[in-house]
């Protein structure tokens, strides 16, 4: 478990450092994820070494969102003044993104299977 925690934190650090040198173009955590993936594919890192720690993190992701969501308190004035447009945007664009992504993926799979 500790080995896994170390590997994940080290990759986060590596990602953050790379991100810093790219002037934060891609966030460090995403770079860390990509680097970890590449290291697993190239067998630089054994999947079983990170499994326990990674499972703990991904299975409990919803909990980690809670502190950030309390930020609603500090921007409450802005939100309450714009509650209608914000709600409308959130619902409409979320529906739109789901529909567009699912549609494109489904169509390209269908096209491939008929070829």
């Amino acid at each position: 478990m500790i080995k896994g925690i170390f590997i994940i934190l080290a990759f986060l650090f590596l990602g953050e450092t790379c991100s810093h040198f790219m002037s934060d173009f891609i966030p460090g955590s995403v770079l860390g994820m990509m680097l970890l993936f590449v290291s697993l594919v190239t067998k630089l890192i054994k999947a079983d070494d990170v499994r326990a720690a990674a499972n703990f993190l991904t299975k409990n992701m919803a909990l980690f969102f809670v502190p950030a969501s309390i930020g609603i308190m500090s921007s409450w004035n802005l939100i309450s003044q714009n509650i209608l447009p914000l709600t409308l945007i959130s619902v409409m664009t979320t529906v739109l993104v789901i529909a567009v992504v699912a549609f494109i993926q489904e169509q390209s799979e269908k096209r491939k299977s008929t070829k």
Binding site: L9, L36, A53, A54, L57, T58, L63, F64
Partner: peptide, 15 residues
Amino acid sequence: IHFMLGPAVVALGLV
């Protein structure tokens, strides 16, 4: 707890 978001994104590499 907020900090855990970063490692959680990295852990998605295994998924």
